[in-house]
Design a binder for these strands. Sequence first.
DNA 1: TTGCCCACTTACTTATTAGTAAGTATATTT
DNA 2: AAATATACTTACTAATAAGTAAGTGGGCAA
Lengths: 186, 186
Amino acid sequence: MSVTRERIIELGESLIRTKGYNAFSYQDISTELGIKNAAIHYYFPTKANLGTSIIKTNIQRFEEMVDNMHSREFDETQQLDTFIKIYIKSHREQKVCLVGSLSPDYETLNETTKTELNKMVDLILRWLAETLTAGKQKGLFAFSDSPENKAVLIFSSLVAGLQLSRVVETIDFKNICLSIEDGLKT
Amino acid sequence: MSVTRERIIELGESLIRTKGYNAFSYQDISTELGIKNAAIHYYFPTKANLGTSIIKTNIQRFEEMVDNMHSREFDETQQLDTFIKIYIKSHREQKVCLVGSLSPDYETLNETTKTELNKMVDLILRWLAETLTAGKQKGLFAFSDSPENKAVLIFSSLVAGLQLSRVVETIDFKNICLSIEDGLKT
DNA sequence: TTGCCCACTTACTTATTAGTAAGTATATTT
DNA sequence: AAATATACTTACTAATAAGTAAGTGGGCAA
């Protein structure tokens, strides 16, 4: 696949996670990549198209990560830890996550982009719930909630934890992550 | 104070919480209120000015709510419940909260607006941490985390819980709220 | 009654936005 | 060698954005 196309997706994701979907423009990308406006439209006719592609790429990355963890036979503690490390990295980069950036803008997205975001959130939550269930069965995790509820609680803490950390410097995000893991200890 | 000014603030808040700060325009407000573009600029010279005023209004409302709860001698369980009910209402209205909408756009806000948002988050987290501490001392709440950490975890669950609920219909937000309260039970 | 302030409107400007149509250089295929 | 496809650029358009300067009507004060 085209390297320019990949650069556009990568930079587009970075811009969404830094400034938000409705604040970034094709100009931001073209200037940074040293190409013209129309070059982006060549790969992504509309902004909605680019947005959808960015989410699709993220879904693929997530699926590959899960596959990889399964084939390496990571236990549930290791899997959760790997997932949380993505957020630690985001925090270091002063970026929110894709879901946390796009969700508040949900009503401004077009239908296909909405659907793709819906898929991504659903995928993450289903994986988390499954992992929590399996981990509990193995005696690695302990919690009284339903796995689905617990999955939302954990995911929400990560998503909004990143958002709030950028606003208030007093928040210790790494400690939040530790609390999430400690909250599952047996 | 002017009724038009108040209407602009109210509608502005609603727009931010529905579409996001960078997606709403003065046109949206002027059309809805049947006034002209320039009438909004009369009260709020710049969009940043309006944004800041909306946050200030929310801070005031929050402070009044806390004062009110204190003067009515609400215990910590009742106070937390009152706070959570704000989010239940937001969920019913299909809106995210102001903090949850503005935080992802943080980098696009001007300095005074950033400062005001910072104040608001700080205020809420400090109140939450204090309420959790007092409730724990009275034996109303039980938790092993630091109150500051627990405050961020609870607030994050509410903020992102609203965001995610709008994206995925399978999330039972009221149940999330119940889980938060159950998680503090002695 | 004159003058002034308040709460706007009229009528703009300037900048930026997403998006497009047509052209072009380079490489690849026929 | 000619035709074609790829990966763009040039040069726009139309819409929308925030913001402003100057004007206006109505009420109140001096």
